[in-house]
Design a protein around this nucleic acid. Sequence first.
DNA 1: TATGAATGAGCCTTCATTCAT
DNA 2: TATGAATGAAGGCTCATTCAT
Lengths: 206, 206, 206, 206
Amino acid sequence: MGKAEAKKIHKLNTILDSAFELFTKQGVEKTSISEISEKAGVAKGTFYLYFRDKHELRDRLIYHQSSKLFKEAAAALDNVVACSGVKMKFDDKMIFIIDYLINQLSQNPLLLSFISKNLSWGVFKKALTSKTTDDEIDFKQIYYKMLTEEDTKFNEPEIMLFMIIELVGSTCYSAVLYNEPAGIEELKPYLFNTIRAIIREHEITE
Amino acid sequence: MGKAEAKKIHKLNTILDSAFELFTKQGVEKTSISEISEKAGVAKGTFYLYFRDKHELRDRLIYHQSSKLFKEAAAALDNVVACSGVKMKFDDKMIFIIDYLINQLSQNPLLLSFISKNLSWGVFKKALTSKTTDDEIDFKQIYYKMLTEEDTKFNEPEIMLFMIIELVGSTCYSAVLYNEPAGIEELKPYLFNTIRAIIREHEITE
Amino acid sequence: MGKAEAKKIHKLNTILDSAFELFTKQGVEKTSISEISEKAGVAKGTFYLYFRDKHELRDRLIYHQSSKLFKEAAAALDNVVACSGVKMKFDDKMIFIIDYLINQLSQNPLLLSFISKNLSWGVFKKALTSKTTDDEIDFKQIYYKMLTEEDTKFNEPEIMLFMIIELVGSTCYSAVLYNEPAGIEELKPYLFNTIRAIIREHEITE
Amino acid sequence: MGKAEAKKIHKLNTILDSAFELFTKQGVEKTSISEISEKAGVAKGTFYLYFRDKHELRDRLIYHQSSKLFKEAAAALDNVVACSGVKMKFDDKMIFIIDYLINQLSQNPLLLSFISKNLSWGVFKKALTSKTTDDEIDFKQIYYKMLTEEDTKFNEPEIMLFMIIELVGSTCYSAVLYNEPAGIEELKPYLFNTIRAIIREHEITE
DNA sequence: TATGAATGAGCCTTCATTCAT
DNA sequence: TATGAATGAAGGCTCATTCAT
């Protein structure tokens, strides 16, 4: 029973993994379905049993990978809060999460490259807002929970998030992958200060 | 003599223009050399007399277009300074230039899209640093001149520039093209404040 | 026992029906076995338990459908003869049958199209001559019976039948499906007169 | 100059010939573009320089082949009329042409098969009515000229032509290719008599 | 220099057929 | 018997690149 099912899932994962590796190495456009199939040790026709085309595969990959990342980051934050017992402020939480993400992506530059090139704000919003399935988490909910736990209130929280994410995303890309204009560790202090500045700017001061 | 030369340059420009129009409309990957040649009214073989391949063409195009933009912006700033006679502070100059660029790109979303998708910090640096040819200007020089004219001094001016550019680039892309998470005009105040914050952060206070 | 048997026959018929619908709608070549199986609610592999390939299925379908049609026509003729009690002449019988067939096919253009495209004289002869199975009738026998009941005798009756059938088949195809060069009702008088002429020509006049 | 042009035309003809041979041998559906190219000694891509797809090629082939045939037949008739000096009647002319066509097609059964399977009345009408180009003749005009030269007048001449053509086409197909229900020569007397009967039927008798 | 016909590798996709379950 | 995942050959088509003119 479950045997056939399990085999199928295993094959699906093999294809996903092969595709991910190729996409990150050579880019989506330059990866052919032949290559993916071959690397997965699967006939070309088999690919089409699992995906309608390359774009569906790509979308599922982005969705899956970025969800995983955010889930880990959120879990790490929870863990720290729970262990230390100290109440963190909003900007510290934010920085913690971003630092976590940067560290993860620094260790996996290919993932960074893949996400940077394929993850637009639109896809991001959809991915992180959509119904929570088995694996995915609703990041938006976490974000708003973080906001309400705070005493301070914020103007336009969505714009605030947007600016932080765009800033982080684009600066990391260059710093991690090309050490330009400086390595990521050198950049971090400036980056984090800028993030705090952005947050401060959106604070509603009575 | 000059005639043949002029004809050649004219043909080159025709190819560049055709390619730019197609690249912005359909993307680089989905534009074939056949299309470019046809639109330029040139035989397919002729293309190869001017460019080694599509990528060389693309790079020259980015180079050319972004130089033109910055040149305009710098000229506009000069003009304002000259006319008003008032001495502007560094951050105001920066904001002026960025505002100018954003306005230009808002009117030409295809150009924005093209630049965003193909302009990495690496290409940018190269484009804005390289020797001044007929048409290009050395933006870096302008930037450093702006810095030295100031009384204040700055830490890591290159990182500062980098962060500003990355922030502007990525936020504009989404705001102008998709109005996400808000229209560009609504976003501007936050964006400009953040830029000022970045600059402030890099100021060396004795 | 009988139950399993019945189930099997039912499955067979489901496949036949699905195939017929698809063949008539899209043509034989453009119908895949996947489609047929899916429409029949049967696994793809199951198809091969009933048919060697698509062509065998197609032949059985033609056979079955045309037999059914002729059977109906013959029955209708019998009925009229029985009811009216009048002795009909050969050519009137022929016209009656053909008129019946035309009317049926006019109401079912897809069937007409399917038969026209796939029914050659060879298949036709085989279908109408072969041993009477459960459903099929021996039309040839009926034809010869019709001939012997007549006082008049005919030269080359097979050629006569052939010419009538070919004439009717090809003219109906265009007239019913495309109203070209005229609608079937407008065509009928000419067609029937021609049939009578053909028959007359084959009469042996002492 | 003309050299390249001539070469191109030669290549076009090579492709047409190869395709015709394969189409007649195996049918249009079962002939692939790879096969055509290979047989023509041409790269696959070259095919697409001359035709958009297989159907365009098929249509041009039908058009060309059937025009050629009718042209020959009409010329032969003209020749006979001119030489003999005798005035032929309409039905004799018709039979002459049909006899000529049948004889041609008997010698070239593959052509007969190809035309029969791909030439519908619609295509026929279009092919034989369309503007006379270099190679094609306006058969319709010939037909109507034949009619007006006659003393007798005819009812519904288009239906008359239609019935003759359909009868001839479908009976020849079986008789020539399969000798069913009899060889073409044996069939001819019956066929021609039927044609005369059809014509007679359309005569307007005062 | 300029042309554009020719190439052929390589892409995406479909589908009849097999076979382990 | 029945299934349906897997196969891989084959098809249609595109396109960067070459080369004789």
